[in-house]
Design a binder for these strands. Sequence first.
DNA 1: GTGTAGACTTAGTAGGTTTATG
DNA 2: CATAAACCTACTAAGTCTACAC
Length: 473
Amino acid sequence: MYSIKIFFGDWRKSMTDKERDLITDLSKCDFKPMNRYFMDLAEKNRNKTKEEKQKLKEANEAIINRTSGPLSGRGEHPKMGKLKKRIEAEDVIINCSKDSKIPQPPPGHKWKEVRHVNTVTWLASWTENVQNQVKYVMLNPSSKLKGEKDWQKYETARKLAKSIDKIRREYQQDWKSKEMKIRQRAVALYFIDKLALRAGNEKDEDQADTVGCCSLRVEHIELHEEKDDKNFVVVFDFLGKDSIRYYNEVPVEKRVFKNLQLFMENKKGSDDLFDRLNTQIMNKHLNELMEGLTAKVFRTYNASWTLQQQLDLLTNEDDTVAEKILSYNRANRAVAILCNHQRSVPKGHEKSMEKLKEKIEAKKDLIKDGERQVKDAQRDAKHGSVKEKMILDKKKKMLQRLKEQLTKLEIQETDRDENKTIALGTSKLNYLDPRISVAWCKKYDVPIEKIYNKTQRDKFRWAIDMAGPEYRF
DNA sequence: GTGTAGACTTAGTAGGTTTATG
DNA sequence: CATAAACCTACTAAGTCTACAC
């Protein structure tokens, strides 16, 4: 409701005087004819040829380029519905090298500025009006520059792998520190490491209320001396990035538990859990422990480490390729769960599961029938001729194929159901050192195409070129 | 220290396109 | 060939982190 008000306010600002006089109440606006018009149009367009559709698409893109819609932020965004201003050449800064061909603005327009700065990577930028943020045009992930950055990121994570034992010992020691600030830092770091929580920068009032580790409030955790036969359980329940809910019941060391009790003493639910801590303090400390270390490196490290562990645990040498891929997806899934990468249940999931079950039943019936046929053929072939033996052979092969199809379906069933609320893409693209996956493919003789699609192979070209067993994580 | 702008990475969704299946 | 499902891409919001001013 709030966002509708904002939208209407912004819409009125963009109206002509005449329109403003006429349109004073959004609830009196009837958009149904408009909706009907576009539905009809869509219906008509459905039957058009490929070329016609392409043309329409281009025409629509041109319209979209000239207009802008309301902001649709995620979660309870205070500015939801505010109208975004359309961007003109006059808003855009171009950044390119001096000796390059400078792109031309549309006829009758001028760029805001053309600069030649080689310490940044963006090609164009402008400021978006709703949140007053700078937006950029940047290079594709498959570019050499981004590839190099990606490689660096995983190199830092591998470096952390080497000092993680020491770092863990150290923060465990700090749980006992006399200084409150250090204790808080040590407990927060434990969460970042163990639970792969995000750093948790402070946010403005005009953004959705979401938190990460350093910005956790007292109301986001519950302490239980005992829960479901486990001792010292912390229950996390908060909205993280993109307002995705993080819920986790975690048994922790007694010392952590006691510290949390201490941090919560005499505080309201809306108070900061770590009142002596923020991300700058955390990252400054981390950088002293290891060059290049920041909070997010722990997420990368733990994600890649988990993938390697799970792959080792789940893959069997003599499995079929389909079974190996299921194992890979399960390892990937373990990482997605760790990083809390969620998605909404795909629409029609329930129905598609039912259909799959029906298919499986049908296949089982076919197999039963096939077994009967093989038996009959065996009897015929016992004293029979060459021809009858050939029939038996055929039937046996048929049965074998049916059985393979059944396992494939069953694998599909588990895979789909286990995946219904979990998004694998984000971890695959941003957290898993591709060299682990490539090395695994080589070891178990799985074609890389089964793991990475074309875009992904382009992005990870740097890893595909170099990876071998030495890149185990 | 604290606040803010700028640069860059990480995130989920919509919806079109390709592929599988019967 | 039709349909359904899987796959893929574009989009852009929402994080992280650094640098710099005060």
